[in-house]
Amino acid sequence: MRHRPRGEHIIRFDSVGLRYGLGPEVLQDVTFALPSGSFHFLTGASGAGKSSLLRLMYLGLRPSRGRVTLFDKDIAMTRRYELPALRRRIGVVFQDFQLLDHLSTLDNVALPLRVRGVKESEVQKHVPELLGWVGLADHLHAKPPTLSGGQKQRVAIARAVIGRPDLLLADEPTGNVDDHIAMRLLHLFEELNKLGTTVVIATHNQSLVDRFSQYSRLHIERGTVVEPE
């Protein structure tokens, strides 16, 4: 295998396989590397394994075999107490948002800062600023159950980007919003990407991918990642 210089790739999979419990391999022989600062769509039919692949990337799962290298660290060789530092460099928009229903919009978005021990004065300055930027200035103290689908999505995205992540992973972020909002979200991700964040968006919305055809694609088919030309 060719060894690339440090820092060139933000994440890299070598012959990764994944099975849930004793089930069959959902992913097998997955090998790819994402250059720092790149923008990708992750496509594949429903049930192909997009969410599973993202879970491996944000360290929500350990691979059954193979090697995952994140920020130049071999995850299998990394000590448990060092993992939070890696996770903090990743922003995730979960498929079903995973907002905490008992916390206000502001507190939800503040979470990544608070787990890092950022000063409360900083939190109170930056979080409302970002929420204003995504159009939720009037909903700082609303709880997620009172928000519309599109608003929840923007809260989830704000939470994913508040910590200025090096890697942004979004699982079907345009899943249940209309096309117009989906376009706006993608433009937001593009802005982040221009600031240096590597972006991976999982989607099975082919028309959306076609409209942003300038970006590279990772496609999952029969349990493995293929890069279509």
Binding site: G60, I90, L100, L111, V115, R116
Partner: peptide, 16 residues
Amino acid sequence: RGVIEVLHLIGAHDDY
């Protein structure tokens, strides 16, 4: 469990 998982995934240390 759900809340704990979110905290864990956004980089909370166990002690947090």
